[in-house]
């Protein structure tokens, strides 16, 4: 894994991608700071950091767009995949290289916090640190998504655009949670859609009609029985699910200076799921071609 990590990490600075990412991130965030806070005389550092989530949404696709798509286009993936290296090592090497670039960027960015702390009386070291950790974890999840998208296409521009679109959807989920109705019907429909998704997934992976139909019947019965016994469960179900799913909601916790185990696990598992899916994607390509 170290070999891939080293190659990728150095590669970020051999090509312009790493420097462009760091430069763009620092430039845009500095712009937000100067025009949003400094010139208005507002010093709310953690509130400022919340905007950096948006900056990450724009810059992370640039960082991850090349990871797999460029190798596939130039066929250099043949070297990696025919070397005595596991697919998981390749994916993790690439993932951690991007994470390392993000880490350096945030380290450079934290110099701002140190400078500002000299002039501000109401800045608490621990709060700011927790906010940075939150930002870093969110960035890691974004990178995992970007790396996964990159492994599905051999066009890096498409890879960047799709990554950005996915990150945008994740951002919007939070708005949806406040705007969807909290009626019982919505809850039931939501459960039905999820059940349908599970059934389709089972059918696609096993191609077993009996198992799929059985699962469908069990799910339908479960939903119906719950609805008859206590329909209140379904009220506001979609809203709480969306809130739970919302990455921004989790990030906000960190900005407030608090770290809950559930949000830590949420962000880490989001990274894990997408890294795992990337490994699967790389392995799968060998079979499908």
């Amino acid at each position: 894994m170290l070999a891939v990590f080293e190659k990728e990490f150095k590669g970020y600075f051999r090509s312009a991608v790493g420097s462009v990412f760091i430069g763009l991130f620092l430039l845009v965030s500095a712009g937000i700071f100067v025009f949003g806070y400094l010139l208005n005389g507002v010093v709310a550092y953690t509130a400022y950091l919340s905007y950096l989530n948006l900056v990450l949404m724009i810059t992370v696709p640039i960082l991850t767009m090349k990871t797999f798509s460029e190798e596939r286009r130039t066929k250099t993936d043949q070297l990696l995949l025919t070397s005595p290296v596991k697919a998981s090592e390749i994916v993790l090497g690439k993932y951690f290289a991007a994470v390392a670039v993000l880490f350096i960027t945030l380290l450079l960015h934290s110099l701002d916090a140190i400078v500002i702390s000299f002039f501000s009386i109401n800045m608490y070291f621990l709060d700011v640190l927790v906010a940075y950790v939150g930002l870093f974890l969110v960035g890691c999840a974004y990178i995992a998504i970007g790396v996964f998208v990159s492994s599905t296409t051999d066009n890096q521009v498409i890879s960047a655009i799709i990554t950005f679109a996915v990150l945008l959807v994740i951002y919007i989920i939070q708005w949806l949670s406040t705007s969807v109705t909290s009626s019982v019907t919505t809850g039931i429909v939501t459960c039905a859609v999820i059940a349908l998704g599970i059934v389709v997934l089972i059918y696609c992976t096993t191609r077993n009609k009996v198992a799929s139909v059985c699962t469908a019947i069990v799910c339908a019965l479960a939903i119906a029985i719950t609805a008859l016994i206590n329909s209140d469960i379904y009220a506001g179900l979609l809203n709480s699910m969306l809130t739970w799913l919302s990455l921004i909601e989790r990030f906000t916790e960190y900005l407030k200076g608090s770290v809950s185990i559930s949000s830590l696990i949420y962000l880490l598992s989001l990274s894990f799921v997408f890294v795992y899916m990337t490994v699967y994607q790389v392995e799968k390509r060998r079979w499908v071609g």
Partner: peptide
């Protein structure tokens, strides 16, 4: 894979190195 050296149709070289 350790036992095999492979030169594919397009040499898998990284042009920025």
């Amino acid at each position: 894979k350790k036992k095999i050296g492979y030169l594919p149709e397009f040499p898998p070289v990284y042009s920025e190195m």
